[in-house]
């Protein structure tokens, strides 16, 4: 923390007499300004929080269903009945699928760029991956709906045929691949760049001595990575994954274009159906009346808490490892 030192300097008496008066006034104004914007930020945040909880509380007080367990979302009807069970399930499941696919692959790519790729290839690759992190999600959405979904039909049949006995991959309902599984794959593709670029940064920071020592002992490249790179990078990879997870949880447009939503919980992830918080907000918002919107805000609040939890966990892990900062990610 650099802030400790300047704080101490702050109290030191000014050395020069000439610049004193203007300096003091300027100091006061500037300090006031910066403090003011800090406070302004707090005020904005507080008013959003108050607004959210207020609107959500209106919705919750009139809900005829159970907010946590009802398998339905009929908030604009009278009486309103809605619950987040399906949304919570869908959000968590699709994010888990995304993580299960994206993290190993991202670590693989990060290792590829940092340790395996020919040197001429590595730098541009890193660059391209970083650029891909900036592709807007709506574009992933239309690509997913128009290109990925038809392509995945074969894979779905396959999984159903060979892994159908696992229950999870049993496709019991006919239909195109507009399922939570497809959403998971799309989310995985979307968060790959960010997880990759943060992991790569960590892998590049592994002390060279460790690697060279292992090499000198005759270790193969894999043994070097297993013994020196991965242990060093573990917490970095975890926090990178958390950042990716945070993004997957709140993704709206990509999910809304790909998923065929329904209010059923099903462990068969290849079946079309399910829903996520953000997708539900986007899909229902248009037709909702005032009260229906309040109900959607209540679900937004839950999503907000979920994201907060994940981001908080990531920050904790990052904070524990001081030499790696993920703030720019």
């Amino acid at each position: 923390m650099a802030s400790t030192t300047p704080t101490r300097i702050d109290t030191a008496p000014p050395v020069s007499k000439s610049g004193r008066s203007t300096g003091r006034a300027g100091d006061k104004i500037f300090a006031g300004l910066s403090k003011g914007s800090g406070i302004l930020l707090l005020v904005i945040m507080a008013s959003i929080a108050v607004f959210l909880t207020y609107r959500a509380s209106i919705a919750l007080s009139k809900n005829e269903g159970n907010f946590l367990t009802t398998f339905d979302w009929n908030a604009s009807a009278t009486p309103p009945v809605f619950g987040i069970a399906v949304l919570l399930f869908g959000t968590v499941v699709s994010s888990i699928i995304a993580m299960a696919i994206a993290v190993p692959i991202a670590v693989g790519i990060a290792l590829f760029i940092s340790h395996y790729a020919p040197r001429k290839l590595a730098a541009p690759l890193a660059y391209v991956v970083d650029l891909l992190a900036a592709v807007p999600s709506i574009i992933y959405g239309i690509w997913g709906a128009l290109f990925l979904v038809p392509q995945l039909a074969g894979l779905n049949l396959w999984l159903d045929e060979y892994l159908g006995w696992t229950y999870v991959f049993d496709k019991t309902q006919v239909g195109v691949a507009r399922s939570l599984f497809t959403v998971g794959i799309l989310l995985a593709i979307m968060i790959l760049p960010i997880v990759t670029s943060v992991s790569r940064e960590v892998f590049l920071q592994v002390p060279r001595m460790n690697e060279e020592a292992a090499l000198a002992l005759g270790a193969t490249r894999w043994e070097v990575i297993r013994m020196s790179v991965l242990p060093f990078g573990r917490s970095g990879v975890i926090s990178a994954s958390m950042l990716g997870l945070g993004r997957a949880l709140g993704e709206t447009m990509a999910v809304a274009t790909v998923l065929s939503p329904s209010f059923l919980i099903s462990g068969h992830i290849l079946n079309p159906g399910g829903g996520t918080f953000a997708q539900n907000i986007a899909a229902k918002f248009d037709e909702a009346n005032e009260f229906g919107r309040d109900a959607l805000i209540a679900s937004g609040l839950v999503l907000f808490l979920l994201t907060l939890l994940v981001n908080g966990a990531a920050r904790l892990i990052i904070a524990r490892r001081k030499d790696f900062s993920g703030a720019n990610a």
């Binding site: 709140g250 953000a278 907000i281 937004g300 999503l303 907000f304």
Partner: peptide, 10 residues
Amino acid sequence: DVMTGIPSIV
């Protein structure tokens, strides 16, 4: 930190 988690629609 909290603010980074605001869903954009909110």
